[in-house]
Nucleic acid binder design. Structure first.
Lengths: 345, 345
DNA sequence: TTGAAAGCGCTAACAC
DNA sequence: GTGTTAGCGCTTTCAA
């Protein structure tokens, strides 16, 4: 086992001082070319690589950004992580990930652990429980301590920091309009309870689209489900509600769901009713993930550009860390949604 | 902005020495109960939290484990991450993630970056490019430097380290048998080229199942696709091959695919042919992910227990880090696969 | 051109 | 019972 070599050992080996070695490795003109080259050759020979921990301690900062998301096993969040990782890599940062599992407590603990160690700043999306409790003390405190935070997707006005959001309302409006444009008039909405900001905004987009098209609102065509991570419990309930809705409103000719899972449930029920997608019922959903892509027929979706969000968030955070942003006030970047047309509409 | 407080500041504030503070915070009996309590109260008041960087430097090790995976936007890997994160959290470790994006170069760079900073050990799955090049110097070197490595899923005998693997051959055998048990005799296999170890092993399992059931091998019923991450390019080609295969072999009554994506392609083509799943053709695939779960009909799959693999890998690694394993020789844990029966068979 | 020394935050052996 | 100090690996100011 070859332990990693330190500057000190290198210095001893060469019979010079540690500062000479350090300077040589940084190509300082203070040091003679001869010494410099000798040191560098030796360093390479011994495969010297600086200890980043020591550097961090010295610099009182690390080149690490912490990402806290509710879930990795979730296409959208995974895409965001991918985007963050890509930028971080390019700009010489590390990415540390932790999962809140939609739990408030875990979110708080993870944030503290990160803040105590290696993190320069945070990129995060709030857990559902946090949104429900409306307790943001941990984030306020982190910001207070001077660590920049970039919130994405599930954000909240009470927190004063940089944000990268998707234009949820506009996305939902586009999706609903997309259905209306194909002559659909009785559009069922499957959404979440309003405390989930994205659910609320998407509901608003739906309502707005109806209004703009002068289609009167029928409250019987809105299904709001409790949004937990126990999809095995929620889905059967949802499917039942859907059956009832389809029976009571046989005129339904379009369905818009605020996520892919709900769309999958809708497909199942539609097929049960022996209806054809898209002829009898058109279907469109939020989130352009694998379920939509590989479904038969492939589903039209609202693409939230997860990777793009990750990229924007990481750039924003790193710019803050490197003081590349003049503007002291928080910045909010909006990533536009886009309809991905496939065979379900 | 309230900067984080250090022991030094705390000591100054209280008019005692740093060591008194440090010992008090650790509840050392050396210090009088009175002082201890005073210090602790003060620390709480100022919201003191130790600087982990300094601790790491002191202890010459960190409580961080590095996870290097080819992709996050991939159900199986995301599940593994989830498992790792869960154990790490419980046992007081941080998780740092980096993505190789199936690239050899990125894998090497990421590994070095990690090794230079915060990492106690690694949990990783090799990138496809690494498997193709068969160049494992970076991993050997990391192990040489004394950092434990746990490989999972995509492993290789040339690397002498702890491993957590899925019994791919047995899983494929189960899946194929599952089809045979329903009276299917002409089973199409969609797999990858042999250099991907999991593809090769799954192919072997398929062959073994046929042999055990005395079904003669028909090479026309094996489709091997080049396995890249460009599914948009691969899938249309695959679908074409499938169409040809179904036309030339109308007797096909079962399909086994080595991943979900191939299964999605199969579903599409089967539906094009107006065949019924499972009556005309039964379909089963490896990887119990969202595609299978939310497909209509939901697909029977081979569950690889990603979370379980993550849990095992993390426990193995942390046990090594904490010298809880007597056995100096590498350990290989095998996580059994299991058939998840759903409506496609 | 090179080296000595301080200091980043913390711990722990040792001294008082 | 409390304090002093060295040291983890590195950078950097200042002195030689």
């Amino acid at each position: 086992m070859k332990k990693k070599i330190t500057i000190k050992q290198l210095a001893a080996e060469l019979g010079v001082s540690v500062s000479t070695v350090s300077k040589s490795l940084h190509d300082s003109p203070e040091i003679s070319k001869e010494t410099r080259e000798k040191v560098q050759a030796f360093a390479k020979l011994y495969n010297y690589r600086p200890n980043n921990i020591a550097l961090s301690l010295k610099n009182k900062k690390t080149k690490t950004i912490g990402v806290i998301i509710p879930e990795v096993v979730h296409h959208f969040f995974a895409m965001v992580v991918k985007g963050v990782e890509q930028v971080a890599m390019e700009r010489g940062y590390n990415v540390v990930i932790s999962l809140s599992n939609e739990s408030f407590e875990k979110e708080v603990i993870n944030m503290e652990t990160f803040a105590d160690s290696l993190i320069g700043g945070f990129i995060m999306s709030l857990s559902k429980e946090t949104l429900k409790k409306q307790d943001y003390h941990h984030i306020h405190q982190t910001i207070e301590e001077g660590m920049p935070v970039v919130l994405f997707d599930r954000t909240v006005p009470e927190i004063n920091c940089d944000k990268v959001i998707v234009n949820d309302e506009q996305g939902a409006l586009l999706a609903t309009k997309h259905l209306i444009d194909q002559g659909k008039k009785n559009i069922l909405l499957i959404t979440t309870e309003d405390y989930i900001s994205v659910g609320r905004l998407r509901t608003q987009g739906y309502l707005k689209a109806l209004q703009e098209a002068n289609i009167p609102l029928n409250n019987g065509l809105i299904i709001k489900t409790e949004d937990t991570n126990r999809s095995d419990i929620i889905l059967p309930l949802l499917e039942n509600e859907l059956r009832t809705a389809l029976k009571q409103n046989p005129e339904i000719d379009g369905i818009f769901t605020v996520n892919e899972i709900y769309a999958a449930a809708a497909m199942r029920v539609i097929r049960e009713f022996n209806l054809n997608i898209p002829n009898d019922i058109s279907l469109v959903c939020f989130t352009d993930g694998v379920i939509s892509k590989y479904a038969t027929p492939p589903l039209s979706t609202v693409n939230q550009h997860g990777t793009q969000i990750g990229i924007e968030a990481a750039n924003l955070l790193i710019d803050r860390l490197e003081n590349k942003i003049e503007q002291p006030k928080p910045i909010t970047k909006v990533v536009a949604c886009e309809i991905v047309r496939r065979d379900s509409t």
